[in-house]
Design a protein around this nucleic acid. Structure first.
Lengths: 235, 235
DNA sequence: CAGATAATCAAACGAATGTTTGAATGAGGG
DNA sequence: CCCTCATTCAAACATTCGTTTGATTATCTG
């Protein structure tokens, strides 16, 4: 029983944090679920904060490593990378983890929450785990989208993270299966890439505000040409 | 001083909840900030949960009302609505609130968090405040995007909410001003609409997986035609 | 002004929390 | 078997929390 108690604590914490958040999950709830003694948390992890750190590190370090490796492989390919490829490299490892089972789903829920809701005492975690990855991802996106000024790219990267965060949290694999018409869980990656690549590729805003939302122009889907700009018909 | 203490409590709670979350914000911290007595919370609101409810209701009821009115005005216009118009009607009131001052920014942060992190005892709040609005918005979107099957539309609506949630939380007006090239805060609505409308308008996934992320096709921006699908050059 | 109601106050209450402690038990090695 | 270290345990501790209570103060109205 080398690490059995430790693993059980991590599993229980992961599940309860994902469902109730960090502050609303007590150590007594975790240890009850893990069938362990309350003091085991302090013995194995030192403190609640360290337990939270360990829960993240357990799965996020391999995940981040994989994502970085995927992005590096893209860059080493010696050819221009498409937006779709960059997005797939960034997103697919996390969706695969999510599909591994209940633990994967729980962890990606935590991922989503951890981008938004992190206790004050653990504020370093996002930068620690994501800093390099996001930098790399942004660099690759910048190369695939040379028409975008840096500021606008930064905005769109934020939008992309918002989509991912919400996807991890708000949509379980069960919800994806319920949307049969959309093809269910296996199609989620493609749904995400379809949506995000279109948004990322959208033309830069003109300096004179040509994209004012007053309906003078709209993007429409023309089956022979794809998405194009078209003037509105006057009534 | 009719409602002065009550307003101070709401303001203090709003600020601290936005910064630290609900569970990590104690009533003693709120009352210290509001220069009020601890028991004032129970006198004016009854409980901490009711205070949370009141913080949301104070600004969300007018905001939701305005959003519904904007959407209703669109539908009453007697002509086809564009995606851009629907997005603007849904998003612009919240961005205006956000720009009113620090209180607006705090509240939209709360909005973003409230879509994701809500205490178990307050699980009814999202449906209570958003149910009708999101239904209405989805109906309007379905009409502007008739090429999308319902399941796929539901997914893209989730993605849209993720973008908004993250925008409210992760980007303050100060961050927007820092991105001068992107045009700062006044352009945020346009940035959002540009990104979201492109994503929403993206063609439906084909049943045979034509959008597989293997790089065979990519969407590219052709200045004369807009975003089109193009086969990759072979190396 | 007096009485009633509203609002505030300090203290107390009961519960919950994370951390610590020293004893007890388990495991491994000589 | 004994010793050492690792692990677990129950109890205690100090702190924090939301809620309640009864007294006090403030405000309003006739």
């Amino acid at each position: 029983m080398e690490d059995d108690t430790r693993q059980r604590l991590l599993d229980a914490a992961e599940a309860l944090f994902a469902e109730h958040g960090f502050a609303d999950t007590s150590l007594r709830a975790i240890t009850a679920r893990a069938k362990a003694n309350l003091a085991a948390v302090n013995y194995h992890f030192g403190s609640k904060d360290e337990l939270i750190r360990a829960v993240f590190a357990r799965r996020l370090e391999p995940l981040t490593g994989e994502r970085l490796a995927r992005l590096a492989a893209l860059e080493a390919g010696g050819r221009a990378v498409t937006v779709e490829e960059a997005l797939a490299a960034f997103i697919e490892p996390s969706l695969r983890l999510r599909r591994e089972g209940p633990h994967g789903e729980r962890f990606t829920r935590l991922l989503g929450r951890g981008l938004i809701e992190i206790p004050d005492s653990l504020r370093e975690l996002p930068r620690h785990h994501y800093g390099q990855l996001l930098e790399r991802f942004q660099q690759i996106l910048a190369r695939t989208l040379p028409h975008l000024p840096p500021g606008e790219l930064r905005w769109r990267l934020r939008f992309t993270l918002g989509v991912l965060s919400f996807t991890y949290i708000a949509a379980s694999p069960r919800a994806a299966e319920a949307d049969q018409i959309a093809g269910g869980e296996e199609r989620l990656l493609q749904q995400l890439i379809r949506f995000l690549s279109a948004g990322l590729r959208a033309p830069e805003l003109d300096a004179d505000g040509a994209a004012a939302p007053d309906g003078r122009f709209q993007q429409v889907f023309d089956p022979s040409r794809g998405v194009v700009e078209k003037a509105r018909h006057k009534i």
